[in-house]
Design a binder for these strands. Structure first.
Length: 217
DNA sequence: CTCCAGGGGGCCA
DNA sequence: TGGCCCCATGGA
């Protein structure tokens, strides 16, 4: 399928989704938005964003929304604060690991391609960071042109008749999109958000009927 | 009441 | 590798 055409179609239909950075329009001068986005990427694993926002708000109010604070706070306090995001025991552990990693590697974060692939592997090495979360961090926190694949992406492909791609391996699917698009982080950012939006609007039934093109407009 | 969100780890064949 | 099961809260 024409990957870029689908992007333009979704953008025209739903408009810019305004994901990271600055999700929700909250301005916080002096904050490291990179780390806040990383926290969001971990907390939103298999979890509705509304539940994540409550957790982030709690972290913000308790001055815990930075790597140093999360590394220092007790696991108990951290768990209590992020409880609304679900899997709070696992996610508290994940945040600790990510915070430690962030502090240790802060100075080596660079935009070069070599460092990008290295950083991706290092992220995947962390307990609790899988491919989708790693790529979300690279794209949304570090503004790198890495295409994020998720269940909605597969549903979209399936709804357009790409049954083979639907079954494809994560990295194969990621490269399918990356090879067919200009290497533009802003575009990747918006595209993934639009796919999620599309998935929410059409619902689960769309993957059976293949008729998301027929409705509306 | 059930279903499921902006997944990932562990285990087993 | 691929298929299960587990993790957990809150909104629909």
């Amino acid at each position: 399928m024409n990957v870029l055409a689908v992007y333009n179609e979704l953008l025209a239909k739903y408009g810019p989704q305004g994901w990271w950075p600055h999700h929700g329009g909250r301005k916080r001068p002096g904050f490291d938005y990179k780390f806040e986005i990383i926290v969001g990427a971990v907390l939103t694993q298999n979890t509705a964003w509304t539940n994540v926002e409550k957790a982030i708000e709690c972290l913000f109010k308790k001055n815990l929304l930075d790597a140093q604070s999360i590394a220092a706070v007790s696991i108990k306090r951290l768990e209590t604060c992020i409880k609304s995001s679900g899997y709070y025991r696992q996610k508290a552990k994940k945040l600790k690991i990510v915070a430690k990693f962030f502090l240790e590697n802060k100075k080596s974060f660079t935009p070069s391609f070599h460092h990008l692939t290295t950083l991706r592997l290092k992220l995947l090495d962390l307990w609790g960071i899988g491919r989708e979360t790693a790529d979300s961090i690279l794209l949304y926190a570090f503004n790198q042109p890495v295409f994020v694949i998720d269940a909605y992406t597969r549903r979209l492909l399936k709804s357009r008749g790409h049954k083979k791609l639907f079954m494809a391996d994560y990295d194969e699917l990621r490269q399918y999109f990356e090879r067919r698009l200009p290497q533009d982080a802003k575009l990747f950012n918006e595209y993934h958000a639009l796919i999620v939006k599309w998935g929410k609007v059409v619902g689960k039934g769309s993957s059976i009927g293949c008729n998301d093109m027929l409705e509306t407009e």
